[in-house]
Design a protein around this nucleic acid. Structure first.
Lengths: 323, 323
DNA sequence: TTGTAAGCGTTATCAC
DNA sequence: GTGATAACGCTTACAA
């Protein structure tokens, strides 16, 4: 019965098993063949010593890797409020997890300089978040940016915001719409691209306001807009959450969608509380996440990686109709 | 001009600055006083060598800490689909971030054995997630469990599910309700406690089904229930997401809430797409997150930590009325 | 298949 | 206030 002693190390296990340190290491890692007999002896010794496997910290230093990838998402609460964020996060986590890597959430406020990160993913985040950017580049940490403006030395994964928006605009034009209003996102790379796509078809589209992809904010903007007796026949939103909020507000005022007003969104997420299907641009959220994760993995391996541009799909629902 | 050389270490910086390794270390960490002059010399040398600060991996090994806390949340996509999850995650992240620690998302599927974690938080997750539990205990990693069944050697943070549900039940009883139906969560610690609280007042409450806190699933269950011509005057749900779905379905069928049916929820999250305020049990999500994070920090420091039980508040809205 | 030895880049202890 | 030196616990050439 000894006192509270330090936890056993691989060296202790090796001693107990009567083998060398390197052999014990191999018994655990399997990086080189070890005879069955000795492996059993090592594992047995580990078991009886209460050794739970190689210390990750030591391994990390030795291998120069932490096995952790950071993901910057701006403010957590707002970042995940939009359901479009989740399938992508899920896919990222799945691919990284399968490769044995963990995913670390990075808030805007935090100081990440001391965190052991093998790569960092920037997911649709605003200017503030870019602050730490240069520091990571200086540390030589691979960066993967989702839906951000291009930047040298970084891998980019994006969707065809502009093409998708233009396709939607053509659909609306075909339906006879000519007076188009837009509810945009706050200034960002996606916002600019999506607006540009819309203007490819409707150069005179009127922006009625900008807000986050948040139900409350969008409904308020819609309410103000309805109060102004607008003459547009369609309101194009830059997210489904916004579009759903507009539909709710229209209904609240006794307006019919799409009878009195057509409404369109962006993303292609479920809105089960609406009894109509939004017309929207569906983006491949899972594919996007997988592309991001794969890019991060490749960059960690030191491989060169091509930027990725994913296609989107116009999904015509029942929230748009003839002008 | 040399070829692609290894990145500079603290030893290189010390040499360049003409000081010892230990002094250079202190210049960065500030753990002991260093004269201003030498500090400047060290930082200058670092600057010109392109040294970006002490290698986190090395520091981690030396200090026996990774600066990373894991949080197990089951399936990511489902875990964050309920808006109640976010304010808590936000609070956890904020407190840990302020202490310089990162938060790592742990999916159910992944193998976390090789991740360098200083502590692990278990957030309302099912049995499956508990699989890795014993491994962490064996590794001596502090565990903090949110809304889970107690388990030796672990710190618990919970809310008063039972008391809250009982308070709601009394409110309903006061309104004259006697025939009570329940839409529960899938079997879990919170589910059992909340149901127990309800039965403290209504022992004969009828469970009409169980599902995740997901709009689509709850609406489907509600739909089936309405089809069965129920005679209950109130439907108590175990989350606001469920309750909102029930309200939507009731409306869709031309039923008035609370005229034809009273509906109650749990959590106290905003449901802006409803034009009524849910009667619900509001839980202090931010407080819960902060308590969890503080417990994790204390456990990492080796301190003893008391379990935490947070109070909840009955918030009477317009979704409940006289029987 | 197994053993020897050299680091990985820090921080902490101790003396000066 | 500064400097030498010993860990931290492991992986991986290289040798046997």
């Amino acid at each position: 019965m000894s006192g509270p002693t330090r936890s056993p190390t691989l060296a202790d296990v090796a001693d107990a098993a009567g083998v060398s340190l390197s052999t014990a290491s191999l018994a655990f890692s399997g990086n080189k063949p070890v005879s069955d007999a000795t492996r059993q002896r090592v594992l047995g010794a580990a078991e009886s010593l209460g050794y739970t496997g190689p210390n990750p910290l030591a391994r990390n230093l030795r291998q120069g890797r932490s096995g952790v990838v950071g993901i910057a998402v701006g403010q957590l609460s707002t970042a995940f409020r939009d359901p479009a964020a989740l399938p992508m996060l899920d896919a990222v986590s799945e691919v990284l997890g399968a490769a044995g890597l963990g995913l670390l959430l990075m808030g805007d406020e935090d100081d990440h300089a001391r965190l052991p990160l093998d790569a960092v993913i920037y997911d649709i985040c605003g200017r503030e978040t870019w602050a730490a950017y240069d520091a990571f580049v200086a540390r030589g940490i691979p960066l993967v940016v989702v839906e951000g403006p291009t930047w040298p030395g970084t891998t980019f994964v994006d969707i065809d915001h502009r093409g998708g928006s233009a396709a939607l605009a053509r659909h609306l034009h075909d339906l006879g719409h000519r007076r188009v209003a837009v509810l945009t996102l706050e200034p960002s790379h996606p916002q600019r691209q999506r607006e540009a796509g819309l203007r490819d078809v409707f150069p005179d589209a009127v922006v009625i306001g900008a807000c986050a992809s948040d139900h409350g904010a969008a409904q308020q903007l819609a309410s103000d807009w309805f109060d102004s007796s607008p003459d547009a026949t369609v309101l194009v939103c830059q997210s489904d959450v916004q579009a759903a909020a507009v539909v709710v507000e229209a209904r609240r005022r006794g307006l019919s969608v799409p009878g009195d007003l057509s409404v369109a969104g962006f993303d292609g997420v479920p809105t089960p509380w609406l009894d109509l299907e939004l017309t929207t641009i569906a983006q491949p959220l899972g594919d996007k996440g997988r592309a991001v994760a794969r890019a991060a993995l490749a960059r960690i391996e030191g491989d060169d990686v091509e930027d990725v541009l994913l296609p989107v799909t116009l999904r015509v629902g029942s929230s748009t109709g003839p002008a």
